[in-house]
Computed example of a mutant assay.
Amino acid sequence: MVPAEPYTSARTDSLESHSYRITVDDGRESFYALSIEDATSEEAWLMSDTVVALDNVR
């Protein structure tokens, strides 16, 4: 694992979000995932499989 480096970009319009419903075990199980990505960097992203709706985040 590589230590995190500070993110110094002043741009805030480059963030993108995507939501996914992921099905596994031949359709027996499914879960939701949320991805937040910086469109200008392939190394800056966050993925969570614990959020069903943003209203549940506090």
Rank of each mutant, 00 (worst) to 15 (best):
V2F: 02
V2M: 02
V2T: 07
V2R: 03
P3C: 01
P3I: 00
P3S: 00
P3F: 00
A4N: 13
E5G: 12
P6Y: 10
P6A: 10
P6C: 10
Y7H: 00
T8N: 13
T8Y: 06
T8P: 06
S9M: 02
S9G: 04
S9N: 04
A10N: 09
A10E: 14
A10K: 11
R11D: 15
R11T: 09
R11Q: 12
T12S: 03
T12L: 03
T12E: 01
D13K: 06
D13W: 05
S14Q: 14
L15T: 04
E16F: 09
E16T: 03
E16Y: 07
E16P: 04
E16G: 05
S17D: 04
H18S: 14
H18Y: 15
S19N: 09
Y20M: 07
Y20P: 07
I22A: 11
T23I: 05
T23K: 03
T23H: 03
T23W: 01
V24D: 00
V24W: 01
D25I: 12
D26N: 14
G27F: 00
G27A: 00
G27S: 00
R28K: 06
R28C: 02
R28E: 08
E29Q: 09
S30T: 05
S30M: 05
S30E: 11
F31Y: 15
Y32G: 07
A33E: 01
A33C: 00
L34F: 13
L34R: 05
L34D: 01
L34K: 07
L34E: 01
S35A: 15
I36S: 08
I36H: 06
E37V: 13
E37R: 12
D38G: 10
D38Y: 02
A39R: 11
T40N: 04
T40H: 02
T40D: 07
T40Q: 02
S41M: 03
E42T: 02
E42N: 01
E42S: 02
E42P: 03
E42G: 02
E42D: 06
E43G: 08
A44E: 02
W45N: 07
W45I: 05
W45Q: 10
W45M: 08
W45C: 06
L46W: 14
L46E: 08
L46G: 08
M47G: 09
M47W: 10
S48P: 04
S48F: 05
S48G: 11
S48H: 08
S48M: 09
S48Y: 06
D49V: 11
D49E: 12
D49F: 12
D49W: 12
D49R: 11
D49Q: 15
T50H: 02
T50F: 00
T50W: 01
V51P: 10
V51L: 14
V51R: 13
V51D: 10
V52T: 15
V52D: 15
V52K: 15
L54H: 09
L54A: 05
L54Q: 08
D55M: 08
N56W: 13
N56R: 15
V57C: 07
V57K: 04
V57T: 06
R58E: 15
R58L: 13
R58N: 15
